Computed example of a mutant assay.
Amino acid sequence: MPDRTVRILLAAVLVLLALYVAQPYLQPLLYSADAPRAVTARGNLAQSETATIALFEQASPSVVHVFAQSAARGQDLLDLDDEAGEQGGTQTGTGFIWDGAGHVVTNTHVVQNAARAGGSVSVRMSDGEVVSATLVGMAPSYDLAVLQLGRVAHMPPPLAIGTSADLKVGQTTFAIGNPFGLDHTLTTGVISAVRRRMPTSEGREVSGVIQTDAAINPGNSGGPLLDSAGRLIGVNTAIVSPSGASAGIGFAIPVDVVNRIVPELIRVGRVRNPGIGIIAAQEAATARLGIDGVVIVRVLPGSPAAQAGLHGVDPQTGELGDVIIAANDRPVHRLADLTAAMEAAGLGAPLTLKVVRDGRARQVRITTADVAENRQ
């Protein structure tokens, strides 16, 4: 190979080596963006994004932040708002405008401690206005409560009402609330299951409960669960999570139940529950005794159960009285089964119970009556 060619190749190699060594120093000089970069046009939003934005803009003004101040903060099985406990007894949650009269729907467990302790409730509207509110009524058996707003500068429109009767697993859901005090947070998901059963107080269960994987966290309690049309399909109430934060399993009270209970709370301040006037044993105690049915601990004086001759546990000897094992020919394994049978029968309706006493079964005809929820 001629010497001239060798010299050219060596020179080229040296140039490449020099560029390689100098590259870290040359690149910042040549390519640094030391001025604002030009904005790249993104084009139109996706149709799904546009629909979600429109849904939030339409619904969010009707969602409010609820603050319930109590002197002493108690415990509740459905209490999801533990972060509020460190704020001087203030429990926080979410609510939404129900009607043009300024009624707000939220969860019972958001406001009940303030109600019991003679506390106060206030509501922060979506525009930041803080308004005092009074408690109209609570339905602990459904974890629903209704508030009445005071004077509001601008009343938002009530949310559109949907139905929970035709919901399908896989439908898109939207939850708006105030998780951890962060106002008007939107989360999305799908309906994970329908017709779940959720225990509340007084041994009752809400049937038809909606399960969703839309993120629901402490502070979302009482907020709306919406479908893709922006209609209310449920009221967010509980989560299943070892950590207390969203684990993708949230529950909402179905709107068909809400639409039945809320008007009654507005009219009379409470829900007239069909009952028979008994105090039942705890399920855990019944299970430990190996009893399948509802053990009557005490019969309320003057109640339908007393008039029908039912007996509770003997307070002197501890001997069992009546155990209810069926209602209207349906098996009764626990109190929720009995309350479901009473609700199916309705208020002031006849109910046929099968009860066992001293090992002998008999039929008892009884008529349901209005039983106050907060009996002692």
Rank of each mutant, 00 (worst) to 15 (best):
M125R: 02
I261K: 03
P254D: 00
A349Q: 06
Q27G: 12
G230P: 02
S201I: 00
F174S: 05
A12T: 12
T163S: 11
G189Q: 05
G302C: 07
A284H: 13
V39I: 15
G348T: 08
A287I: 15
A284I: 05
I210F: 02
A12P: 09
G312T: 04
T200S: 08
A175Y: 02
A145L: 02
L17A: 15
D256Y: 04
A41M: 12
F180Q: 06
A160R: 05
I279R: 10
M138T: 13
L353D: 03
P156G: 04
Q75A: 14
M138I: 06
V130Q: 14
S122Q: 14
G100W: 11
P242K: 11
N44G: 15
I233D: 00
Q282M: 12
P2C: 12
V271Q: 04
T286Q: 09
E49N: 15
A369I: 01
Y31R: 15
E319M: 08
L149G: 04
M198K: 09
V262Y: 02
F251S: 01
R298N: 09
V209F: 01
W98C: 00
A72N: 13
D79P: 03
A369W: 04
G318T: 12
S141M: 10
P315W: 05
D3Y: 07
H109Y: 11
T352M: 09
D337H: 09
V21G: 14
Q23I: 14
